[in-house]
Design a protein around this nucleic acid. Structure first.
Lengths: 222, 222
DNA sequence: GCGAAGAATCTTGCATACAAGAATATTGAC
DNA sequence: GTCAATATTCTTGTATGCAAGATTCTTCGC
């Protein structure tokens, strides 16, 4: 499939982490992974190194790699930064967008609307990605775009949890609407504010979720 | 020195790139680098991979790695993002700083002042790093801090060029002064604005520099 | 003389081997 | 019975070897 083994390994391990097959704290033994995938340790090491660079796993010298679930407060921090980056993208998009950008953005927005009406959370999830990608693109700052995509990807598993929440899809779409209007009107500050809130809400929802789980666990175990 | 060869190699190659010993477009031959450093190809590969993850070099499958000087407009984009991240750090620092943070920030600021009075641009350069690091720290968002440090590091060679410019050190210190006051007063918006401008100026100065060099080159070569 | 096809060479990608440090188990002392 | 020290095992870090793809050089055809 992939051109080289390293990328295939990286994607596979990444998926295994996101899907929970490789739980937090799990030790990633190079030899075992190599055997498991039927390759040698060399590409495994390189794949692990790449995952370490993203921050998905922690590589401790001479002590192997472990899966790190970022502490909840860290995920919250990441949402904070994401909110600011998205706000920046929105501000620039409002000022710099071309007519082609408008078309892409509107099309993505309408696609979200159709998925919402169909009640298809999975479809909405992907359409939402495209919607945000359109904003990054319209910001006409490629470096910003890359940073946004990387962080968006990193936060993927946490966002995915949220669309299941009651009314989240409706609210999300309403927020998108405000964002689109601001960008098309060239109102950078409004676009930034709308996007910042749109993302910040997710961070807060995540925090709520963590608190809820902690409470449940507390109730069960002590 | 370093614990492992890979880190040593990574730092060395990174320095060679920043210092210009390894110019843009230079092909990084694994075998040659291995011989040069007296190690095997394995750690060289891993070091190159890490540099590729940062974006300092480009790794093309089966075709080796080359040093990529980011195009000027891309550096400008990076300064734009840096400005926004610093502004965010400043806004949070203004709201969240502890008394210990204040002490560190003030100490760093005063150290900059002493280097300025001594007319020592090199010292100022390092003190400036510490000053900004103090702000990241005071933002109490570790993820943001790490992102800032990484980008700051990435932009290092371009910042270094600038302190040589006339009056830049004086102006920089004056801007620092405004930033410190805003943070200590708890004025988040003011701190953000001051920092955004502080960094944006550098991006613009970089653009000026590029334009100037381009003009000179144009005058020479046709 | 110029262009294209093929061969030779060179470089990367992966596998295997070996050495050194960390984790663990075992044994001895208290 | 518990703690500590040592020995053993296990894992990582680095070196080397081999195969496949890329580049370059040579040769042949036009």
């Amino acid at each position: 499939m992939s051109e080289n083994i390293v990328q295939r390994l990286r994607d596979q391990i990444e998926n295994d982490i996101f899907s929970g097959r490789l739980p937090t704290g799990h030790r990633l033994d190079e030899t075992k992974l190599a055997n498991q995938f039927g390759v040698s340790r060399t590409p495994v090491r390189e794949a692990l190194m790449q995952l370490g660079a993203i921050g998905l796993i922690e590589i401790r010298p001479r002590r192997g790699a472990i899966v790190v679930e970022p502490a909840p407060h860290r995920v919250y921090e990441m949402f904070e930064v994401m909110a600011e980056l998205e706000a920046m993208a929105g501000r620039h998009a409002a000022r710099r967008h071309t007519s082609a950008d408008c078309g892409t953005l509107l099309a993505a927005h309408e696609k979200c609307g159709r998925s919402l009406q169909a009640g298809d959370a999975d479809a909405y999830y992907y359409d939402n990605d495209a919607f945000h990608a359109a904003i990054y693109e319209a910001s006409h700052n490629d470096f910003l775009k890359e940073q946004c995509i990387a962080l968006h990807r990193r936060l993927r598993p946490y966002r995915r949890l949220q669309l299941r929440a009651r009314n989240r899809m409706d609210n999300s779409f309403a927020e998108h609407d405000r964002i689109v209007k601001a960008i098309l009107n060239g109102n950078g500050d409004e676009a930034a504010a709308a996007l910042r809130m749109h993302i910040a809400i997710q961070g807060e929802r995540f925090s709520d979720l963590v608190a809820q789980i902690a409470a449940e666990r507390g109730g069960l175990s002590g």
